[in-house]
Design a protein around this nucleic acid. Structure first.
Lengths: 199, 199
DNA sequence: CCTAAATGCAACACCCGAGTCTCACTTCTG
DNA sequence: CAGAAGTGAGACTCGGGTGTTGCATTTAGG
């Protein structure tokens, strides 16, 4: 049964262009969530027709983008061991990973608001496991906020702001950028949710 | 010099429709920042042509909307005496006013991101006075965050989330809705910015 | 009540983005 | 190298939103 890869090996350069398009889409859509496919094609250095060849529709492109994001989040949740590690440690680790994901959250929020289709931009699994982390934080006394969904909303809202801070911002100090953003995110969220700041 | 009101008294019903349109625009755009003028016209119970008669363009309508918002913010800053009252008191009062302004911040953020024109959705004066309030909060030891502009960003981000909480949400408790939202906003922001929560 | 102003309605031109198709040309890949 | 797959460029349709105009009707207000 070699049926999983029928008779269509997909040429290498075509697949390469798929990733180029996705990369370009992230960049362009982060700047303007309503950007046209032409802008994305330009950013990718390809013709608009090619984008349509690789993705049946704009929606198909966005779906792929979302799927990619959820995959990365899932990886982050796994590697941070959100179910088993001490919750404060897990929060730190998951945030480290998420900060590295160069994905504009504003983009997602915008798209969700726009497409009333109730686009499940974060998969149920991601939401459930993230909310579990906040439950564990509360049970451990690290925060006082009761509702995990509220916690997640605040986390994402703050994440958006941290993400948008320019590279050399004074809030980030002088050291490693990603590390500083992680610190800022964690301490801001813990404070917002009624916890005591570490350090 | 009776020139300020030339020979054009503007009929009463016309002016009434202007406010109707603005009201409808707030409602509709809060739900979908890209909503068409037709949807706004429908919400206002008017024909689309009438919207165009009262507002030269979509942009003109949005400008008026923003101007109105800034006016309300200015009033809030004045009535809260942000420059002179104890900063924690001022924060509380200004938040009370702002919570009453039924204006979706998501709308504004979206519009700002969309119209790259650097639309100054919050007037310089509003920004300056709000940032002053955060400076005073820091000097008084109520928060530890250094950068007033960062504080304002977090404030607005949280405000957006508080604004979007459904009416009977558990985070709001059972009492007066507006008061509960004010409390949640203030305590969340103070915590996020490194302060100690009152109570 | 009578006029001027405002509206509703319908048609129109215009622009922009999505999606499709063709055809000549380039680039993989066996 | 040869054929297949992929691409670029351009034209095209289609849908939807903006902005404009003309005309009949309604409404405000002296």
């Amino acid at each position: 049964m070699s049926a999983s890869t029928p008779p269509r090996p997909v040429r290498a350069d075509a697949e390469r262009n798929v990733t180029r398009i996705l990369e370009a889409a992230k960049t362009v859509l982060a700047d303007d969530p309503t950007a046209s496919l032409e802008r994305i094609a330009d950013e990718a250095g390809l013709a608009r027709a090619t984008v349509h060849r690789r993705f049946a529709s704009r929606k198909a492109l966005l779906d792929t983008l979302f799927a990619q994001l959820n995959e990365q989040y899932l990886r982050a949740l796994n590697e941070a061991r959100v179910e088993t590690a001490p919750p404060l440690v897990a929060l730190h680790r998951v945030t480290e990973f998420v900060i590295e994901v160069k994905f504009s959250h504003r983009l997602i929020v915008d798209l969700v608001n726009r497409t009333q289709t109730g686009h499940a931009f974060l998969s149920d699994e991601v939401v459930a496991r993230a909310e579990l982390l906040f439950s564990r934080l509360r049970d451990a006394g690290a925060i006082t906020a009761e509702s995990p969904s509220w916690c997640l909303r605040i986390y994402l809202a703050v994440l958006d702001e941290v993400h948008q801070l320019p590279a050399g911002a004074p809030e980030l100090g002088a050291g490693d950028d990603a590390a500083a953003r992680t610190e800022l995110q964690v301490s801001t969220v813990l404070g917002a949710l009624g916890g005591v700041r570490p350090q």
